[in-house]
Write a protein that binds this DNA or RNA. Structure first.
Length: 827
RNA sequence: GCCGGGGUGGUGAAAUCGGUAUACACAGGGGACUUAAAAUCCCCCGGGAGCAUUCCCAUGCGGGUUCGAGUCCCGCCCCCGGCACCA
């Protein structure tokens, strides 16, 4: 006989018991053989966390729970769901934190990982703990380095000089995000720009394909749009402006423009201050001023430079170019509003038709010429602001006058191309991916520099290049990696010629670690290959990836690129990594963003302690639409908590047994309607309304204190299982089932015939205003409903003295009687 | 500035192929049970008028289309997120 205590809902006890059982019985983990043979594989991926010292925050739990609900739902439908988790533990984040508290990341990270693991288990995620990944484990980064070597061998990795943010006080390179209005976020010192030789992955080679596939992949629209904009494809032309007075040299300034039709209005040329031709075009008279300006620009960091300023700055170089269309001499200026990093780093300035050029021309009194006119304007209509619309008729453009903008674009490029002064060109906002970090906490880039052989990749058999333990990993003023101080590590013989050589001392970007982790998960059983061909074919691409939109453009774009390139190299059979991607929303608290400084961060552990993981999960999913996020209100947890209690009580009655009698027909109908709704809403990630539907159902089944029967509550246990897996397991067992509810396809089916109501409540409107409702058999025709409506006293009252002019009938929903004052009798 | 997503009760939010606005939940009020509390259960809960049947008003603001608009169209305002001198 079960005791009374045994009948109470003890969340903590139940959750611990089932978590232990899942571990012991391998409920959620796959053996290598199972991975090889799974009949209905479903790869349910979520974004692996960076294991911070603070532990999991609510945002993590929210994201993981939402993804876990999806995975559990699929599993209940009979899929073999693989749901791995791992740790993205390399990177500046970890390194800075370690520096701050004076600890070593090699000692810090394992403790963080352990704490995260404990928390992840506690929330009841369906994780396969036999297939985890830790990016800082040499067994993992061996293959990150292998990946680099593959890219190097394919010509997709190259070294070139690039500007970086340098903090002279911290003596380190900063990421753009670490620079706040020109100052270092940590010490406040002014940040400057340095040029350093770095490794790049040529993602721009893939820009068009990355863009093109966006059209058809099944991703959240917001994410696709973000990538679309980030890649930023612009179609235009490169025009060449010969430097004037240049003798036989024929130096040219190449500019990129999307508006070659406006070339007749190009009254000056602007180079980025860093442009390589600045020295050549600058006249001796202007040299000091030009140099001063360049120095001033360089002192600005990259971020401050990109801030739109109210007034433009720049200086005249004293040099001139020839406008290839007009043949006229135009002055060459340098200005920081022209960025070296985009297009050719030089522009033809068309102040009449570009707002920025217009501002600049006004500030420095440069000529403004109209070359496009719209209806009602002509060549002499003055311009008070730049006319930027991409339509109109050309004026002041010689023999092109009268052409439309689009025609002129083609004609002018074609004509200038004949003299090699132009060619059609596409430019991208997307840059090549700089993967070098002059830091310590990352995988060493597996390259050996040899004076004779150049950059030589570390041979596969010598991988991994283990990151050496360096007690003092603080960066120094040299701007080169801390590894450059570890002489006995970096001095090695060249793998090709055997002569003295040195290792690359930069480490790679964290985003490289995370660009392929999902490929590794199913293959962690192998240490002789990054991903097994057979297993990869079975499990990849990922079926569903759920994660935050903060990674919309970096991680998600990089991983697409990596997979596409690996596909081209012949390593993978697919070129898009994720069949379906869904972005989840952000969780806020009582209307405000959570932040440490505001002190309104939710610490999950005490809440789980008090209410249990099931309640916490259910509440998080109930807050609002998962894709949009929600507002966490401390008191609100009582709702879902009460619901779980009532469910428990209904399945495990305090006194007596669960009635085995037949279901009440009305309740049964509601049950089938509920199964239908939940089955439709869960895969659409509309968890909040799915939960509401379950609550509504349980309320109906318990209405007026009635005791639900077994057949009324048993399916509800399955419906709630993705959200409250521990309770579902416990109730499932108490209902007499053997084994886990998640083994076997236990998701209930609904009978469409049992969903339909017998009677419909039809709203009756008179002139669009509801005046009553009538109850009619489902499917009743218009005349029947009208007859019923006429009998409804309030409706009848509104029809007095009226003629019905029109009747609109929406079956089972609504009847609208359009009436007007009756014509007066004999009137 | 550009690109997303939003604006509905005291609060979180439902409802979007145009068809009874406010489901579900929190908070609040009243009641049952209880020595009491908790838990549970029942009732009320957008605003205004009214004893009431009922009527009027209400989905950020202003117009429009329609028998009918939270939903569609036009013009605005505000909030959140991202990008931002991209030529």
């Amino acid at each position: 006989m079960p005791s009374n205590a045994d009948k109470a809902y003890d969340a903590a006890a139940i959750e611990h018991r089932w978590q232990a059982r899942w571990d012991n019985e391998g409920t959620n983990s796959f053996t290598l053989n199972e991975l090889r043979t799974a009949a209905r594989p479903f790869f349910n991926l979520m974004m692996f966390p960076y294991p911070s010292a603070e532990g999991l925050h609510v945002g993590n739990i929210y994201a993981f729970t939402g993804a876990d609900v999806h995975g559990r739902f699929k599993r209940l439908q009979g899929y073999d769901v693989f749901e791995p988790i791992g740790f993205d533990a390399f990177g500046i984040h970890s390194e800075n934190f370690a520096l701050k508290i004076g600890a070593h990341p090699m000692r810090l990270i394992p403790a963080n990982v352990q704490n995260f693991t404990r928390q992840l288990r506690r929330i009841g995620g369906m994780f396969d703990w036999d297939h985890t990944v830790d990016t800082t484990d040499p067994a993992y980064y061996k293959w990150t380095q292998w990946l680099f070597v593959q890219f190097f061998k394919s010509g997709l990795a190259e070294q070139k000089e690039a500007p970086v943010n340098w903090c002279p006080s911290c003596m380190t390179v900063l990421a753009n995000e670490q620079v706040i209005v020109g100052a270092c976020e940590r010490c406040g010192a002014g940040v400057e720009q340095r040029f350093i030789r770095q490794w790049f992955f040529k993602i721009t080679d893939y820009a068009d394909r990355l863009l093109e596939n966006l059209r058809h992949i099944d991703w959240s629209d917001t994410t696709r749009k973000a990538q679309w904009n980030w890649i930023g494809r612009s179609v235009g032309a490169e025009l060449r402006f010969p430097v004037a007075d240049d003798g036989a040299d024929q130096t040219e300034v190449a500019v990129f423009t999307t508006r070659p039709d406006t070339v007749f209005g190009a009254t000056y040329v602007v180079l980025a201050p860093e442009h390589p031709l600045v020295d050549a075009v600058t006249s001796d008279a202007r040299r000091d001023e030009v140099e001063a300006y360049r120095e001033r620009t360089q002192a600005l960091d990259l971020v401050a430079r990109k801030k739109v300023e109210k007034h433009k700055t720049g200086v005249f170089t004293g040099g001139y170019c020839i406008n290839p269309a007009t043949g006229k001499r135009v002055p060459v200026w340098i200005a920081d509003y022209v960025l070296m990093g985009y297009g050719t780093g030089a522009i033809m300035a068309v102040p009449g038709h570009d707002e920025r050029d217009f501002d600049f021309a006004q500030a420095f009194d440069l000529p403004i010429t109209r070359v496009v006119a719209q209806a009602g304007e002509d060549a002499s209509t003055p311009l008070t602001i730049a006319y930027e619309y991409p339509t109109g008729t050309l004026v002041n453009s010689g023999r092109y006058d009268g052409l439309q903008v689009d025609e002129a674009k083609e004609a002018i490029v074609a004509d200038l191309a004949a003299n090699r002064r132009a060619e059609a060109k596409v430019t991208y906002r997307l840059h090549d991916w700089c993967i070098s970090r002059q830091r310590y906490w990352g995988p060493p880039i597996p390259i050996i520099h040899c004076d004779h052989c150049g950059a030589v990749p570390v041979p596969d058999e010598d991988l991994p290049v283990v990151l050496p333990f360096v007690e003092d990993f603080r960066p120094d003023e040299s701007g080169i990696s801390p590894l450059a101080r570890v002489r006995d590590w970096y001095e090695v013989p060249c793998p090709e010629c055997g002569r003295d050589a040195t290792r690359e001392t930069d480490v790679s970007d964290t985003f490289l670690d995370s660009s392929w982790y999902f490929l590794r998960y199913p293959s962690t059983d192998f240490d002789d290959q990054p991903f097994d061909a057979e297993i990869t074919r079975r499990w990849l691409p990922v079926d569903t990836y759920i994660g935050g939109n903060e990674h919309a453009v970096l991680h998600l774009l990089y991983s697409r690129f990596i997979v596409m390139a690996l596909h081209d190299m012949g390593w993978l059979h697919f070129e898009e990594p994720y069949d379906q991607f869904r972005a989840h929303g952000l969780i806020i608290r009582e209307g405000a963003k959570m932040s440490k400084s505001k002190g309104n961060v939710i610490v999950p552990d005490p809440i789980i302690e008090r209410y249990g993981a099931d309640t916490f999960r259910l509440y998080l999913m109930f807050l609002g639409p998962f894709a949009e996020g929600g507002d966490y209100q401390d008191r609100g947890i009582a709702g879902p908590h009460g619901f779980l209690h009532r469910l428990w009580e209904s399945v495990v009655p305090e006194d007596g047994d669960l009635p085995e009698t037949a279901a009440d027909p009305a309740v049964e109908r509601k049950l089938h309607q509920t199964i239908k709704r939940v089955t439709e809403q869960v895969p659409a990630l509309r968890y909040n309304t799915a939960i509401a539907a379950m609550m509504e159902y349980l309320n109906a089944a318990r209405a007026g204190g009635r005791i639900p029967t077994r057949s009324e509550v048993e399916p509800l246990v399955c419906l709630v299982a993705p959200f409250a897996p521990h309770m579902a397991e416990e109730l499932w067992q108490r209902l007499g089932h053997e084994g886990s509810i998640f083994d076997g396809a236990n998701w209930p089916a609904y009978d469409p015939a049992k969903c339909v109501e017998q009677q419909a409540r039809v709203a009756v409107q008179v002139n669009g205003r509801v005046r009553g409702t009538v109850s009619v058999p489902v499917g009743a025709d218009r005349d029947t409903v009208v007859a019923e409506a006429m009998n409804e006293p309030n409706v009848a009252r509104h029809l007095e003295g009226m003629d019905v002019r029109r009747v609109i009938h929406i079956p089972d929903r609504l009847l609208n009687l359009v009436v007007a004052q009756a014509a007066a009798v004999g009137g």
